[in-house]
Design a binder for these strands. Structure first.
Length: 189
DNA sequence: GTCGGGATAGACT
DNA sequence: GTCTATCCCGACG
C-alpha cells in the first residue's frame, strides 16, 4: 500500500495546492503533535527549492513517492520536515513550518526544554525537536506509523505570503498560514 | 580534497 | 533590529 491521498489531500497535486490544503491538518508522530498552521511550497522549477538542481544524495527523498517525508539538516543545527508531493520523480515538497500543539504537550515541553505552548512548535526546527523528527524519518511514508495525519475541518481561512529565510524567488507567495493563529513562526501581513 | 553557504533559533544591543 | 553557532552536502577541480 502506497496511498497518495491522506487526510483528504491528494499529494499528486502541485506543491502550492498541497501546502494550502495542509493548513488545519493534524499531524502526529507517535501520538505527539497538533494542527498544522504554517507551511511553505517548494517546486522543481523553483530556484529556492532544494530540488532545483536535480536529485542529489541530500534531496533524493524529494524525488521519491508522494505522501512521504523529506527531512534535512538546516544550518548544521536544526532538522526540517517536508511532505513530498507530485508524482514520484518530480521533486516537489511542502515544508511544515509551524504546528499548534495539541497532543503530548508534556513530552514536547521536555524535548524542547520550554514551558510556553507558543514556543513548542512555532518554527520548522522547533517542531522537529518537539516531535522528535530526525534524519531517521527521511523517506518514511506518512501513511504508516509513527506518522498519523487527520483531515482538517472545513471552512478554515488560509492566508498567503512570501516565504521566509530564502535568497531566491523571495517574492513568490508560497507561504501559507491559518488566519489569526498565534502559533505561526512569524505573523503574516 | 577543499571550500562556502544554507527553507534556523536564540541570545543580545 | 544584529550576531552567530555548527553540520552537511553540493560545487568545484
Amino acid at each position: 500500500m502506497n496511498p497518495t491521498k491522506l487526510a483528504g489531500i491528494d499529494f499528486l497535486a502541485p506543491a502550492e495546492v498541497v501546502a494550502r490544503q495542509l493548513i488545519g491538518v493534524t499531524v502526529l508522530v507517535d501520538g505527539v503533535g497538533g494542527r498544522i498552521v504554517e507551511t511553505e511550497a517548494y517546486d522543481r522549477e523553483d530556484p529556492a527549492s532544494h530540488a532545483y538542481s536535480g536529485p542529489t544524495a541530500r534531496n533524493f527523498a524529494m524525488f521519491g513517492p508522494p505522501a512521504h517525508a523529506y527531512v534535512y539538516r538546516s544550518y548544521g543545527i536544526h532538522w526540517c520536515l517536508n511532505f513530498v508531493c507530485r508524482e514520484e520523480g518530480h521533486g516537489a515538497g511542502v515544508l511544515i513550518r509551524a504546528i499548534e500543539p495539541l497532543a503530548g504537550l508534556d513530552i514536547m515541553r521536555a524535548r524542547r526544554d520550554a514551558e510556553d505552548v507558543q514556543l513548542l512548535c512555532s518554527g520548522p526546527g522547533k517542531l522537529c525537536q518537539a516531535l522528535n523528527v530526525t534524519r531517521d524519518f527521511n523517506g518514511a511514508s506518512l501513511a504508516a506509523p509513527p506518522f498519523r495525519l487527520e483531515a482538517a475541518p472545513p471552512g478554515l481561512e488560509v492566508i498567503a505570503g512570501p516565504r521566509i529565510g530564502i535568497s531566491k524567488a523571495v517574492d513568490v507567495p508560497w507561504r501559507f498560514g491559518l488566519h489569526g493563529s498565534r502559533f505561526v513562526s512569524r505573523p503574516f501581513r
